[in-house]
């Protein structure tokens, strides 16, 4: 990315400005010192909090041992990890969670389209559907860990209405545990999609809708042919963001709901990193798994940056 090309538009180049009397050259000069001083703390923060640990984790993924005594082992961590059933289960579980993304996207779109129709009480619906998104995952995770127990609230309700056969051990069964985690993720993230899509729909120019209505298109055609295509960028942003979320931001849910169990049935890659790094002392494996998570996330981050640089995203001030 070339630097001066983009900076022209927003850089202020005042005419006739002189030195400001504090030893800082005015902005007239193409290059002055003050911007460097202003960005220095941020550069230190990003260097210390992101770049340094990223470089370290990549380097250390080729070492084995404890935190303080590392021995070079080449690709051994990676070789071991890809034969480790726990890692493979974790990776598979992350991929299963990826299936929640299209589900959430479709449901959130339907809800947003309905709310955008100016249905009575839409603000109240939006507020309550969005509420879960901002609540602490630990708090709601604890609530769900009790609610979903075999003798918890959900099964009590199911039994009360005669659906005994549906009352399974949601968190304790190896088949269901990861899907229960997925359900809690959906419960918390769905409102985010609704708010994002609704905001995009509300910002569409009303003229197009008017014109379509005069042309007599049906409600379904209006939504699928006219409204939804226009908010494509918002949909893509949501899909990419949620894909990153379920691949690499679900540790809290797993830790609080199942601790990766039963056995390792509901472990995810983040949990594998935490367990190897901080509970089992296999730091090398924690590092190599972290590199894999970063690689997968990088693909999505790259997609995210590409979306951002699109003209229609820029026009919206993204």
């Amino acid at each position: 990315m070339s630097d001066p090309a983009l900076s022209v538009s927003s850089a202020v180049v005042p005419s006739g400005a002189t030195a400001d009397g504090r030893g800082m050259p005015a902005r007239k000069s193409r290059r002055s010192t003050w911007p460097y001083l202003f960005v220095l703390p941020a550069v230190i923060a990003i260097g210390f909090g992101f770049i340094f640990p990223l470089v370290t984790v990549i380097r250390n993924s080729f070492y084995s041992g404890t935190f303080y005594k590392l021995t070079f082992v080449g690709f051994d961590n990676y070789k071991f990890m890809f034969q480790d059933d726990v890692f493979l289960t974790s990776l598979k579980n992350n991929l299963k969670l990826l299936l929640t993304v299209p589900f959430m996207t479709v449901v959130a779109l339907i809800v947003a389209v309905i709310l955008n129709d100016g249905i009575r009480g839409w603000r109240a619906y939006r507020s309550s559907i969005f509420l879960p998104y901002i609540l602490p995952a630990v708090g709601i995770g604890l609530a769900f860990s009790v609610f979903l127990q075999y003798n918890g609230g959900l099964n009590a309700i199911l039994r009360a209405v005669g659906l005994d056969s549906l009352a399974v051990d949601w968190l304790g069964s190896p088949t269901w545990a990861i899907w229960s985690v997925g359900a809690v993720v959906v419960w918390q993230q769905l409102g985010f999609g609704v708010v994002v899509f609704l905001a995009a729909l509300l910002s569409l120019p009303p003229e197009v809708t008017e014109a379509a209505r005069i042309d007599g298109v049906s409600w379904t055609q209006l939504q699928t042919r006219i409204h939804i295509p226009q908010i494509r960028t918002a949909i893509e942003f949501f899909v990419v963001t949620e894909a990153i979320t379920v691949l690499s931001w679900v540790f809290t849910y797993v830790y609080v709901l199942t601790l990766g169990g039963p056995g390792n049935a509901s472990s995810v890659m983040e949990f594998y990193i935490w367990k190897n790094g901080f509970a089992q002392g296999s730091v090398g494996l924690a590092n190599s798994a972290a590199v894999i998570v970063m690689l997968l996330a990088s693909v999505l981050i790259f997609a995210y940056l590409r979306l951002r640089s699109r003209p229609d995203a820029q026009a919206r001030g993204l």
């Binding site: 990003i46 909090g49 992101f50 340094f52 640990p53 990223l54 370290t56 984790v57 250390n60 935190f67 963001t241 990153i244 691949l247 690499s248 931001w249 540790f251 890659m269 983040e270 990193i273 935490w274 790094g277 901080f278 730091v283 924690a286 590092n287 972290a290 590199v291 998570v293 970063m294 996330a297 999505l300 981050i301 995210y304 940056l305 951002r308």
Partner: peptide, 16 residues
């Protein structure tokens, strides 16, 4: 913009 999306789990071992 890229850093916003970097998962903290990747950074936590070296930072520890």
């Amino acid at each position: 913009i890229a850093a916003i999306m970097v998962p903290p789990v990747v950074l936590v071992v070296p930072m520890f």
